Computed example of a mutant assay.
Amino acid sequence: MRSQLSQRWVAWRQLDGTGMGATVARRKDGTEKNRRTPLPDVARQLFVFSGNECAWSDPNCTTRLVTAENGWVGEIAHIIGAEPTSARHEAWDGKDVDDLRHFSNLMLLCKVHARNIDDKPSRGEFTVEYLRAVKERHEAPYRFGLEQLESEFKDAVAGNIVTPATTMRRYFRWEGVDLDPAEEAEVIALVGKLADRVGTLTRQARQVLALVVKEDEPNCQLIERRLTADSTTLISICEELAGIEAAELYVDEWGEDLPRVVLRGGAVSGIPEMWGQLRMFATSEGIDLNDIIVNLDFSLLD
């Protein structure tokens, strides 16, 4: 395990169909290329199971794909090449082009090994079966660790006790907005649903969420400095937060910005900007946001 969170966590931004995931490259004659950008979920899987190291293992390559200086030195390589002249393309059944950018056909390598398996003088040494075995051997420990954490998840949250908000008088007074009783009741009910959803998270996940809200979507280096956890645990936390639509990992596809955790609105649907409101409320009222989010005491809004 490595200590640098920003070097272990790299994930693609969710795209809405207008960005990188929808791009189709063309050859000089105008026909579509077979090689297409990996879908966001596929790219995320590759990074999660990479351990931030090149997958090459004969001999073992420990090149970090995101360096200590936050440079990107990795490449998403095809096992079966996408284009007719590329390495191992003859193994493709020719049916579905999207199979070529499926998770099972891609692996993360350093630039040296990516070139080694594709260059004409050396590509013949590396069969499809051999590369699949390399990929499986490298990813296996990360898959196992994540599965173990997920199997223990229910036990970790069984004892969570949420103290709900009942009047939210303190919050409404701070907000300075006049609501009629029916509108207040609606907001209280929505905050109650939010509290219940946060209550399904493990304590470590709530600590990360509180920090993300406090620091307004910090980069992963800041999270690493503030909170201690091994990389496999942090990957599991990411899955937890995304599971209740509270937050998710984001990395700039061009590698210009540090990976960071961004807030999502699904957990607070119906209350615009609630995460930001909670941050400003806690700051203004001198409340530690950890008491609300980590300790699950939403009665502090009363």
Rank of each mutant, 00 (worst) to 15 (best):
A87N: 04
K154Q: 08
Y142P: 00
S151K: 06
G176I: 12
P121V: 10
I161R: 14
R115F: 00
D119I: 08
L108H: 09
V191P: 02
T163S: 10
L131S: 03
R203C: 04
R203D: 07
F103P: 01
L201Q: 04
M107N: 06
S151Y: 03
N116P: 00
T163Y: 12
R115P: 00
R170T: 14
V128P: 10
N160C: 13
A182R: 15
Q148Y: 05
T202L: 06
G199A: 08
G145K: 08
V208E: 04
Q204S: 10
I117N: 02
M168F: 15
P141Y: 08
F153Y: 15
R123P: 00
G124R: 04
P164R: 14
S122C: 02
K111T: 05
L179W: 12
G124K: 03
R143Q: 09
A87W: 03
D178L: 15
E139W: 00
E152C: 11
I188Y: 06
H113D: 06
I117F: 00
T163K: 15
A205M: 05
S104Q: 14
S122R: 10
P164S: 07
R101S: 05
E139K: 00
T85H: 11
A140R: 13
A91P: 02
I161W: 06
H102G: 11
L209M: 07
V162M: 09
L108Q: 07
Y142K: 07
D118V: 01
V191H: 00
P141W: 07
P164W: 12
P164A: 09
D178E: 15
S122L: 06
L209E: 08
L190A: 13
E139A: 01
L100M: 13
R88N: 05
A189L: 13
L201P: 01
L100W: 11
G94Y: 14
L106I: 12
E90G: 09
D93A: 04
Y171N: 11
A189D: 14
D178C: 13
T163G: 01
L194R: 03
G145I: 08
G94M: 14
S86Q: 10
A182T: 13
L190V: 11
G199H: 04
L194C: 05
N116H: 01
L131T: 04
L108N: 09
A210P: 01
V177T: 14
G199C: 06
R173L: 14
A158N: 05
L131N: 04
I188P: 01
A165R: 10
W174Q: 11
E136G: 01
K135C: 03
V208F: 07
E90N: 13
L146I: 10
L106W: 09
E152Y: 09
E147F: 01
E150P: 01
H89I: 01
I188C: 09
A165D: 03
W92R: 11
L149I: 10
Y171E: 13
L201M: 11
L179D: 04
V97M: 08
L190M: 12
A205Y: 02
F153P: 03
R170G: 11
E152P: 00
V213E: 09
H89N: 14
C110M: 11
H89T: 06
V157C: 03
L131M: 07
S151H: 07
R169F: 05
E136Y: 02
Q204A: 11
D119E: 12
R115G: 02
F126Q: 02
P181W: 14
T200V: 09
W92E: 10
